[in-house]
């Protein structure tokens, strides 16, 4: 029985995929490529379904508000999914894009 429990622990920790809320993974660039890159082309560097984000003149408060609440008919609201920290990290990612 004890061995079975240990094996179960090992499976959970080592083998099983652990998809959860997106706080763990691999930084804001990966988070962007998970959900945002569908519309904001080339990682936000080019216009696509959504606008180009690199070099945006919008201030941080506007971007946070847009990610949180979206834009009806154009952009989904991510405030229910992403934490405030994650949204802040996405703002940092957008600011890191060189304004080409």
């Amino acid at each position: 029985m004890r061995i079975a429990i240990l094996l179960l622990w090992a499976w959970c920790v080592v083998i099983a995929p652990s998809p959860t809320r997106a706080e763990e993974p691999n930084g804001s660039a990966a988070l962007f490529a998970t959900t945002c890159g569908w519309c904001h082309s080339q990682g936000g560097r080019a216009p696509g379904k959504g606008p180009k984000l690199a070099g945006t003149e919008r201030d941080d408060a506007f971007i946070v508000n847009r990610i949180t609440h979206g834009k009806p008919g154009a952009m989904p609201a991510f405030g229910g999914t992403l934490t405030p920290e994650q949204i802040t990290s996405l703002v940092g990612y957008i600011r890191s894009l060189p304004p080409e």
Binding site: T20, A33, T35, G37, W38, G44
Partner: peptide, 20 residues
């Protein structure tokens, strides 16, 4: 791009790339 699926508190799409 390596990504991790978001399933909590709501499921979100998982692309795994940037493209143009």
């Amino acid at each position: 791009v390596k990504t991790t699926p978001i399933v909590e508190p709501q499921v979100q799409l998982n692309i795994g790339a940037n493209f143009t």
